[in-house]
């Protein structure tokens, strides 16, 4: 039996715009969260989601329904997010502590730039620390960690999304976790 998504794609290919809108409704917010965790920037996350659906629309006829639709669409969003992360040119190292702000590093200054004051209250100090630690992960580890913890995907599913063998994914989860452990070491 075909999945709901595969049927919607089939209808959308026949020019049914409501079917495509239905797909957008099903995935938009999930993809936004995924992109947001990768990019930590609302505008960029929205742009990545928008671009994802444009790509889905343009490549619908090439969608192979032997692959889960979620795997396919997550792959597009993660690839677009990785591209954006790589395009960011670090002007200066955010890891360097700034002398005039005692104990504050660049992250704590910029992390809150797109969160409202109410949200700020809700973000505890620990959350800030972890969020900043995740943000320093190199893109290839970040993707694996975000898919693992946010989307709760199995190692096999992450392998499908990233089109990589499970052994590679496993190594990346281990390294990513070690990386974060070291970042958080003195705060645990």
């Amino acid at each position: 039996m075909k999945s709901i998504e595969a049927n919607l794609i089939r209808l959308a290919l026949k020019g049914d715009q409501r079917a495509f809108a239905e797909l957008v409704g099903m995935y938009q917010d999930k993809l936004y969260h995924l992109a947001y965790r990768m990019l930590y920037n609302r505008q960029e996350a929205e742009d990545a989601v928008q671009e994802t659906f444009l790509r889905v629309f343009r490549n619908m006829e090439r969608y192979d329904d032997s692959m889960k639709f979620s795997t396919w669409i997550y792959r597009i969003t993660t690839n677009l997010s990785i591209d954006r992360l790589r395009r960011r040119k670090p002007g200066f190292s955010l890891d360097a502590e700034l002398p005039e702000h005692d104990g504050l590093d660049g992250y704590s200054m910029f992390a809150s730039e797109d969160t409202s004051p109410e949200e700020e209250v809700l973000l505890s100090e620990t959350q800030h620390i972890i969020r900043n630690a995740i943000d320093t992960l190199p893109p290839k580890y970040k993707t694996v960690m975000v898919l693992r913890y946010l989307e709760d995907l199995s190692l096999q599913e992450i392998g499908d999304v990233m089109d990589m063998p499970v052994t590679t994914i496993k190594t990346r989860v281990h390294r990513g976790r070690e990386f974060l452990r070291k970042k958080l070491e003195h705060k645990l």
Partner: peptide, 20 residues
């Protein structure tokens, strides 16, 4: 440390508040 990291990661990632 690894277990604490794991627990924190899960809780922060699963927490929709602030990013919803």
């Amino acid at each position: 440390q690894l277990e604490k990291t794991e627990a924190l990661l899960s809780s922060v990632m699963a927490e929709p508040k602030g990013q919803a």
